[in-house]
Amino acid sequence: MRSSILIKTLGIPALLGIIVILMYIFAGQFIYQKVTGVRDQQELSKQEEQNLRLKLAVLNDTQNTVAGFSEDVVIALPQSNPTLVAFSQIKNIALQNQILLSNMNVGAEIVDAGVSKVIMSFDADGNTAALIAFLRALESIAPINKLEKLKVTASAEAARASVSIGFFWSALPKQITTVGEGVTTLTADEQATLQTLAGLTQPEFSENVEAVPATEGRADPFTLGQ
């Protein structure tokens, strides 16, 4: 009889206490998770917003500067074998320096780390000073090139250079970054290289590349212009 009175007296307050504790455990946890979840999302969104602002600033900044060099860089490092353009360029600077070319040979394509090259070899005849001027002018022509081997033989009347020179090309990029991915502007080194490439003597004819609206997934963003 006494225990039933105890249950009657303490039962309701104890039940109330248990309900409150359960409320703290379950409902409190639910509310806490909701608040921290939305807070985490907010942090992520804030970070994304900052990245996008930065990217937009870089794009706005490069709109009138770097992007304008896209044709120059493609002429400097074309997307396909530039043998014909290279031959025309060599012939032009040979004419300018009164150099006679002979024994022109073109080797097979060599691929190394995403960049292909073709080695052209020829003999160049002229006086020593003109020959040296011609050889030095080779590095300032587009497409970009590199002397592979050079032998000069000279006499009192004339000089001959046997030249092996590599001309380079590389396929255009197939994919660009996603919208959310960041882009960076050019570093000082990259700026210097860009100036070098833009300063190369342009050929009389070349292939033009123009940007086209990206397809879904932003793949294959470049196409050969007409």
Binding site: A67, G114, T193
Partner: peptide, 23 residues
């Protein structure tokens, strides 16, 4: 809207990176 600029920037960077190796 600036996708064209981004493509050109990407292209310029790609060419610079490869050409600088040659230079």
């Amino acid at each position: 809207n600036l996708e064209g600029v981004e493509q050109r920037l990407f292209l310029v960077k790609d060419r610079i990176q490869k050409a600088s190796g040659v230079i």
